[in-house]
Amino acid sequence: MKFGILVNEGPYQHQASDSAYQFTKAALENGHEIYRVFFYHDGVYNASRLTVPPQDDRNIVTRWSDLGKKYKLDMVVCIAAAQRRGLLDENEAKRQGKDADNIAEGFRISGLGQLIESGIQSERMMVFGD
């Protein structure tokens, strides 16, 4: 079955991203397909390349990146939510005249239409949030 995943909270502050990750991983390991993982609200922070958690803790960002790489996941960060919160990819940084970008490997920034499209194309939409 084809799933769409929506992550509405940032890493560490709330368990939503952890739960979404465990669900996504279990779905993939059981032969299901993930059409897209969409990061919205503070969920965009899951894509910050500059995250440095303590060594004895999980690294939520690289964990998503690794899962994305392994299964070729489409991991999309909402551009409007990201810009508000200081998350930029290289192109956006240039366009907005900012001196740095911070999107981690495997994530891409795009519009909210990608969430709606995920709802249309997926057979189930799972929401993880606060």
Partner: peptide, 20 residues
């Protein structure tokens, strides 16, 4: 249930609603 069971529950039900 566990995460795999969670996945199965969402397969078995056409509509899923999260009460956040």
């Amino acid at each position: 249930t566990d995460y795999a069971g969670f996945v199965n529950l969402s397969v078995d039900n056409k509509t899923v609603q999260a009460w956040l």
